[in-house]
Amino acid sequence: MAGPEKLGHMSDEPPGPDRSTKKARSITGKSPMRIAMGRLMRDKIAVVCLATVVFFVLIAIFAGVLQRLFGVDTNTVLPSQFLDLDGIPRPEYGPPYGAFTMEHPFGIAPRTATDNLAFWLEGARNSLEIATLATIVATVVGITLGLLAGFLGGVVDKVISFITDFFLTLPFLLAALTIAPIVSERFRDSANYVTIQVVQLVLVLAFFGWMGLARLIRGEVLSLREREFIQAARVLGMPTRRVLTRELMPNLAAPIVVSTSLMLPAFVSAEAGLAFLGIGITSRPSWGQTLTQATSFFNDYSLYLWQPLLGIVALVLALNLLGDAVRDALDPKTRR
C-alpha cells in the first residue's frame, strides 16, 4: 500500500540549495562584483590572458625605460655599416642570420638598419595609447547618448536613434580614407602635426565605435526605468541627473565593462590596419607601419614581419578572450 504523498514531492521544481553547504556559505555576504571576480580568477584562460595584457601594458608604460635598459633607440643610423648590398642585415648584427646579441636583441631592420626592438616597443606604446584613448571617448559618448535616449524617450530618443543609425550606415574605412588625407594636407606644416594626427585618428576610431554601446545602454535603460526604485526616485523629485548617475549607472556597470573590454581589441586591430594602409599614424613608430615595410622583405628577412604581427595577434587575442571571460563572469546565468 502506497503511503501518502508529501507536498514537496508533488512539485516539479528541484529543491533549493542547502544554505548549510560549504558552497552556499562561501558566497553568503559577497557582492555580485566579488562573486564575478572570484569566477574570473578561477578561469585559467582568463588569468593567462590577463597576465598577457598586463605584460603589454607594462611594455607600453615603460617603453622608454626598456629602450635605455637595452641601449637601443629609434634613431636612423648609416645603413651601409650594417647591411649587405641587398639591404639585408649582416649576420654579426643579430638574428635571424646571426647569433643573439644584447646590442640588437630583435635584430635590425633591412634597408634602414634601425633597431627592431626599439620600434617594437614604441609600436606597442602607440597602439595601446591610441586604442585606449579611442575606447574612453567612444565609451563616454555611447553611455551618454544611450542614457539620454533610453531615459528621456520621445523626441530625444528618436533623434539619438536616428544619429546612431546614420553613423552605422557610414563605411568606416571609406571615411578614414577620406579624412586622413585632408587632415594631413591641412596641418602638414603645423608644429603640432604629430599631436593633430593622433587626435584625428582617435576621433575617427571613437566616432565609428560608440554606436553598439549606445544601443546596448538604451535597451537596458528602457527596461530599468520602469523598475520600482526608479519610479520611487522620480516620485520623490530626484533630479534627472541624479537618477541617471546614482540610480541607473550602478546597474549598467556589467554591460559597460563587457562592451569596453571588447571594444579595446577592435581598436588595436583598426589602428594597425589603418597604419598598414598608410592612413594611420605616420609620424610615430607603429606596428602597422612596420608590417607595411616588412612585406617586401618577407622572403629574405621574414623576422621583420613576424615580430609586429605576433605582437598584434597576442595582444588582440588576449584582449578578446579576456573580454569573453569578463562577460561570462558577470553573467549570473553562467555556471563556470
Rank of each mutant, 00 (worst) to 15 (best):
A149N: 01
A138M: 05
V268T: 13
A113W: 00
I182Y: 06
T290D: 08
S269H: 09
L58I: 08
M10L: 09
L69C: 14
G209M: 09
T290N: 08
V316E: 01
P4Y: 12
D157L: 07
L224W: 01
F106Y: 09
V235R: 12
F172S: 13
L236G: 15
F208T: 12
G16M: 11
A272Q: 01
S259R: 13
Y301G: 05
L78G: 04
T139H: 03
A314D: 02
F100K: 10
V183A: 05
G280E: 05
L310R: 00
Q81H: 13
P332A: 15
L85F: 14
A232W: 06
E103M: 10
E220P: 00
V316G: 14
F151V: 03
V326M: 07
S259C: 11
A124G: 14
T76C: 10
Q67Y: 09
L303H: 11
G142S: 09
D324E: 13
R335I: 15
V159K: 05
D300I: 10
L170M: 14
M102C: 07
E13R: 12
G8F: 05
S161H: 01
T76K: 15
T282A: 07
I256F: 11
R242Y: 12
V316L: 02
M10W: 10
P4R: 08
V155M: 11
V140I: 15
E92G: 00
T132K: 06
K44E: 01
A63R: 00
T290Q: 15
T135N: 09
A138L: 03
P96Y: 14
S190K: 06
A149W: 00
D331F: 06
R242A: 12
R39E: 01
V72L: 02
T290E: 13
M249W: 04
A149Y: 12
N251F: 03
A149Q: 13
T132M: 13
F100P: 05
K22F: 14
A51D: 14
M263H: 10
I163K: 07
G311K: 02
Y304K: 09
A191E: 08
V202W: 02
P79W: 04
E92I: 04
G311H: 00
